[in-house]
């Protein structure tokens, strides 16, 4: 059976309960190829059921909700079914299963989680702010996974007196820090007026990038491995 849901934690937990006795459930929040005669269920979040399930799961594994949050942020198409498999296993075994790396369900979940956390780490390095005329900092990003709000604490602690915006251009949403509070908002296109010096600093950075390279030791493959081309879009030094 195929279970459709809206991608939220509540609906996921509701679906987990609903599909518990189904031997081969497929869960999805997006498009899904239906086989002929395939039966489908549309799961609507049930706050009460979800809360009950969450309490039960937390009593088994106190860190499992962090795993769920990361799994649901994954950009992989099969992330919902993978998350379902992982949480069914926690429920069936009645214990944390994180280290049972001999199990396919655990391995897949671990892989998805690692891809999300790795991208968070990468983005802390590859994200580029531009300075706006108002003095605010603006960074457009196109991450594989839905992580833009998770980047805020890192930058808030190092740039506490700056107003900054991290804009996930692909998912049309933004995380905003106004020097005091953080909030999240849908954001399609941003109109950005750059400061007078911004272009000059970018030029200086590009000069730095070109100068620090050792041309006689060129290893392009290695560079692309560490810094995949899809992240270059908003890096001034790659244009």
């Amino acid at each position: 059976m195929i279970y459709f849901y809206d991608g939220t934690k509540e609906a996921f937990l509701t679906a987990l309960l609903l599909s518990y006795d189904d031997p081969l459930p497929v869960l999805t929040s997006g498009n899904c190829q239906l086989a002929l005669g395939q039966r489908t269920v549309f799961v609507r979040a049930d706050a009460e059921k979800a809360q009950k399930a969450e309490r039960r799961l937390l009593s088994i594994d106190k860190d499992c909700m962090r795993d769920l949050d990361l799994l649901l942020r994954s950009g992989d198409a099969d992330k919902d079914t993978v998350a379902l498999g992982y949480f069914r296993m926690i429920a069936k075994r009645q214990r944390p299963v994180r280290e049972m790396l001999g199990e396919d369900d655990v391995l897949s979940a671990e892989n998805h989680i690692r891809r999300v956390t790795f991208e968070i780490h990468r983005m802390k390095g590859f994200l580029r702010f531009m300075e706006c005329a108002s003095g605010a900092l603006y960074a457009p990003i196109v991450p594989d996974n839905d992580i833009c709000d998770l980047l805020v604490p890192h930058f808030r602690s190092r740039l506490p007196m700056y107003f900054f915006v991290i804009h996930d251009v692909k998912r049309k949403k933004a995380a905003v820090y106004d020097g005091e509070h953080t909030f999240f908002a849908p954001l399609g296109e941003a109109e950005v007026v750059l400061s007078a010096d911004e272009a000059a600093w970018q030029r200086l950075w590009k000069e730095y990038y070109a100068s620090v390279n050792i041309p006689s030791r060129e290893r392009l493959k290695q560079m692309r491995g560490y810094m995949p081309v899809r992240y270059w879009k908003f890096m001034p030094e790659k244009h």
Partner: peptide, 12 residues
């Protein structure tokens, strides 16, 4: 934290 990589494969 690595912020960029140069064509020689080294990190900045």
């Amino acid at each position: 934290c690595c912020h960029s990589f140069t064509p020689d494969g080294r990190c900045i």
